[in-house]
Write a protein that binds this DNA or RNA. Sequence first.
DNA 1: CAAATAGTGTCTTTAAGACACTATGCC
DNA 2: GGCATAGTGTCTTAAAGACACTATTTG
Lengths: 249, 249
Amino acid sequence: MVTRKPTPRAPVHAPDFERPLVTVDVVIFTVRDEQLQVLLVRRPDTASDPFPGRMALPGGFINVALDASLYDCALRKLEEKTGFEAPYLEQLGSWGSASRDPRGWCATHVYFALVPPPPNDGAPGSEASQWVEVEAALRKRLAFDHAEILAAAVERLRGKVEYTSLPAFLLSEPFTLPQLQRTYEIVLGRPMDKSAFRKRMLDAQFLAETGSIEGGAGRTAMGYRVLDRERAAVFPRTFRAIETPSSRD
Amino acid sequence: MVTRKPTPRAPVHAPDFERPLVTVDVVIFTVRDEQLQVLLVRRPDTASDPFPGRMALPGGFINVALDASLYDCALRKLEEKTGFEAPYLEQLGSWGSASRDPRGWCATHVYFALVPPPPNDGAPGSEASQWVEVEAALRKRLAFDHAEILAAAVERLRGKVEYTSLPAFLLSEPFTLPQLQRTYEIVLGRPMDKSAFRKRMLDAQFLAETGSIEGGAGRTAMGYRVLDRERAAVFPRTFRAIETPSSRD
DNA sequence: CAAATAGTGTCTTTAAGACACTATGCC
DNA sequence: GGCATAGTGTCTTAAAGACACTATTTG
């Protein structure tokens, strides 16, 4: 970010307004067990906490001393929860109002992340955080306005998947084109034509071959990795129709 | 917004973190004098203020007592500056870091608005706020990181104009299709084909006829207004190519 | 060889681009 | 009539959809 510090002629001081609470939340998606899943955490069950025991999106207050920027804060929270170093991370938007947090006027900056499926280690759901299938997560009574935020994140994800290579960030590399197609189908919830799919992916020039991969039964497939893990490829057309954008607080 | 207030078993209290400053800024676009223009305000020239005398985007601190939500705050600031009641207003994103404001860790929530051209009343630029052509505004040394924010807003606007009816919100109603096409051309900075343009607009079903309009020289044209002033129509394809998305703080 | 999966070819369809054409209003 | 502007028609082109076909690997 480009910022310029002025040379103050006199000490500048912050106004005496009451400051809202500021948090950062992260909607972390993955595809596991043939499902689009989202990472949720259980809030502490202490009475002094808002929404005790409820499930919520991972996140928390900005630490002014620790976080250089909102993005860094989101990265920190993502690493704390998943251990992922360089995931796909983009800003979703912000939600702020007097009523969304019982502790006071609060604004949250929401990011959304795509990560490859974590290893299915031991006891799933035993810890404070767990992966939940998105439709099930949307039906849960999440803390704060996190149900609304999650709905917006899912809408944004599905919307962008129609015309970008985002699902490639949901797979561990190398992956095959049939695997990538399956990921698209899981996220969008509808089957896709193989020929059109392959033409589109290969024409978009965002994949690099990594050599053949055996897959059990049937013919071996070519392995691929994405060329640029920072940004998604944008296709010239959507797969079908695009949704209408919605407004936020 | 849907929010649920829990019945707290004990008084919930906000944590003792240092709270960042929170502001809302609005990027207000219009098309005037055949140019895409943005509204800028001059910051007070008092030494105790950051960036004294510099041009900046309109905005300011959240007023926890006055603003029910971020969106309401953006609406309020827009009305204060332009008097517009029901403009097109959508969230652009948020920028926050330790370094962007000399007064301390500060996060701003940025909205972007599209308004019809204001009447060219009296002395343009005499007051604290003035309309500036966007490329000129981008070359100015704006306060804070507002140059970066403005660049992101222009990129988002140009990006969405490729596949939505957004420019319709830059005109006062009723308007003609040639006027709408001219607005697209001004925003995108390139000529468009009349036939393809008209087919696309009429096929998208977002316009209602309002009767003929005389336009000086030449044949009279049909007048139109948009059916839904809350949201833009989305076209099945972009006009040409789409840009790659960029990241923010 | 059969089953399973990977990958290709061909035709259709949709909507944009190019560009020439017709229509209507004012002088 | 002539000019200016509004509006239409026709052909081409880019890329998605449908769907049948070929290719390669394992048992």
